[in-house]
Simulated scan of single mutants.
Amino acid sequence: MQIDLSGRHALITGSTAGIGLAIARGLANAGAEVVVNGRTQSRVDEAIRQVRNAVPGASVSGVAADLGSAEGARVLFDAVPETDILVNNMGIFGPQDFFDIDDEEWERYFQVNVMSGVRVARHYARGMRDRGWGRIQFLGSESSYNIPAGMIHYGVTKTAVVSLARGLAKALAGTGVTVNSILPGLTRSEGVESMLEGMARERGKSVEEVGAEFVMENRPSSIIQRMAEVDEVASMSVYAASPQASATTGAALRVEGGIIDFIS
């Protein structure tokens, strides 16, 4: 399959590192004109540099804006009025005991993980609908289904994201705009890599060995029995953004290595 996104414009929120940056590289490699987004200009500039290094000749620009607020979203909309492909990747996570999570922290997670996607999808979907073509994606998580006891606030927001994608797909039925969620599992991003390096030093093992152990200790239902790589998740996103994925909509596309233990 040859995916060609030449002439298409793509916007990836929260794309200065990890899965978001890998998706930006993947879409640029498929020929899309890419806009990366992060909270600070320095992170955005570095992401642009990395995409250009990975994909010589790529058309890539960036916008520094914090989409966890309506004001930040307006900064993005002013800079990028329209797009053909929207990947809602922005999100935060972190372990915390349920009884220690106050209302303010719940609200912060909801604003960043859910409302950031609501804001940008509400803005960009109108133009996609009017033009008769578009691709919208929301980055969920296997935690949407396997709510982690130590990150209940994160799991709840990711369940909301999957529901949002399904509902928006129905709202855009018959328009030529597809909407899907993508569900990664444990993925070897920069933050996870740093954590694994520390564990590897403590255990006297390689990062790969420790990563496999970590998966089996924390997600024993994994079928691949390892962490996914960011590019493996990005490949699903690039496919879902492609013309070839025109009949794939309203779906929760799993890239979690079989952690979710049911058939669907």
Rank of each mutant, 00 (worst) to 15 (best):
Q2W: 05
I3H: 03
D4M: 06
D4Y: 06
D4Q: 07
D4A: 08
L5Y: 06
S6M: 04
S6E: 13
G7C: 02
H9C: 02
A10R: 03
I12P: 03
T13S: 15
A17W: 04
A22D: 10
I23Q: 07
A24G: 14
A24R: 03
G26C: 13
A30P: 13
A32I: 05
A32Y: 06
E33C: 09
V34E: 11
V35I: 15
V36M: 06
S42D: 15
R49H: 13
R49F: 06
V51Q: 07
A54S: 15
G57I: 12
G62L: 14
A64E: 03
L67K: 04
G68I: 13
E71H: 09
G72M: 07
G72W: 05
V75W: 00
V75E: 11
L76M: 15
F77Y: 14
E82V: 14
T83K: 02
T83C: 15
N88C: 14
I92Y: 03
G94N: 05
F98W: 05
I101C: 07
I101N: 06
D103S: 14
D103G: 04
W106M: 01
E107W: 04
E107L: 11
R108D: 12
N113I: 00
M115V: 09
G117F: 09
G117V: 08
G117E: 10
R119S: 04
R119E: 04
A125H: 03
R126G: 03
G127L: 02
G127V: 09
R129C: 03
W133N: 00
Q137K: 01
L139P: 00
S141D: 12
P148D: 13
A149F: 06
G150N: 15
M151W: 05
I152D: 07
I152R: 12
I152N: 12
K158W: 10
T159E: 07
V162W: 10
A165D: 07
G167T: 13
L168M: 06
A171N: 11
A171E: 15
L172D: 08
L172E: 09
L172M: 14
G174H: 06
G174K: 07
T175V: 08
V177C: 12
T178N: 14
N180W: 10
I182D: 02
L183R: 06
R188G: 02
S206A: 06
S206L: 06
S206V: 10
V207H: 00
V207C: 01
E208G: 01
E209R: 09
G211I: 06
V215K: 07
M216W: 06
N218E: 06
N218M: 11
S221E: 15
I223N: 09
R226W: 13
A228R: 00
A228C: 12
E232L: 10
A234N: 01
M236R: 00
S237E: 01
A240D: 00
A240N: 05
A241Y: 02
A245Q: 05
A247T: 11
A247S: 13
T248A: 08
G250L: 04
A252T: 03
A252S: 14
R254S: 11
I259W: 12
S264D: 14
